[in-house]
Amino acid sequence: MTSRKDFYLVRADMLTEAMEKTLQAKELLHSGKVTKINEAVHKVGMSRSAFYKYKDGIFPFHTMVREKIVTLSIILVDRSGSLSQLLGKVAETGANVLTINQTIPLQGRAQMTITIDTAPMQLELGDLIDWIEQLEAVEKIELVGTGS
């Protein structure tokens, strides 16, 4: 008999404090800012037992995404060069743009979806999203789908 594990995607604001602190401690360890679990749990203010309870069961979304194709929904300010700047950022990562769909700009903003092959990327998906979000012309970005 095999043991089946169910998985759920949960918004960050729905996590318990212990779960959030576990993620923070894991990030400290992963980044090398601390080298021992004792240091990490002390730094984030949680007990070792709580850390061990959650450490193997909670992961940042970007570390679980194994799919190579992602679709992003973006609200882009309508100004000359905005789309070019966005596509330039995507190209810098090594990702390949597969499709672009954009509405006619209304009230100075355009809704667009962009589908990207992330296989050749040199960074994590979460980093790509953060990078795009920092562009002045991008008002909002959301991951809306993944596939292989």
Results as ranks from 00 to 15, higher is better:
A110L: 00
I116N: 01
D127A: 12
L128N: 02
Y8F: 15
K68N: 14
Q24I: 08
Q102H: 04
V144P: 01
G32C: 10
K53M: 06
L128F: 01
E27W: 15
Q85K: 15
E139M: 10
H30Y: 15
A50R: 03
V77D: 10
V97T: 07
S148K: 12
I114F: 00
V44P: 10
T99I: 01
V90N: 05
I129P: 01
Y8C: 00
I116Y: 03
I116W: 03
I141D: 02
T146W: 08
P60C: 02
A95I: 06
A137H: 07
N38V: 15
Q102I: 09
V77Y: 12
K36I: 04
L128G: 01
S73Y: 10
L83H: 04
D56A: 07
G145M: 01
T115Q: 13
Q24N: 11
K53P: 05
L9S: 11
P105D: 01
N38A: 14
H42G: 12
W131I: 00
L125A: 08
L23D: 11
Q85I: 10
T146H: 07
L28Y: 15
G45Q: 06
D56G: 15
I141W: 05
M46Q: 07
M64H: 05
T146E: 10
L72D: 08
S49T: 13
S3M: 14
Y54D: 07
T2M: 14
D117I: 04
A119C: 00
V65G: 05
N101R: 13
W131E: 10
S3F: 15
W131Q: 10
L87F: 07
Q134T: 00
F59M: 06
G94V: 05
D127T: 14
L125F: 05
I58Q: 03
E139S: 09
V144E: 03
K53E: 13
I141S: 03
S49V: 12
K55P: 00
A12Q: 12
F61I: 13
G147C: 00
M19F: 03
K68W: 00
F7H: 13
K68I: 02
I37C: 04
P120Y: 05
I129F: 05
L72K: 07
K26R: 07
I100D: 01
A137K: 07
G145E: 05
G32V: 12
T35Q: 15
V44M: 13
L143R: 06
A95L: 02
A137T: 13
K5W: 12
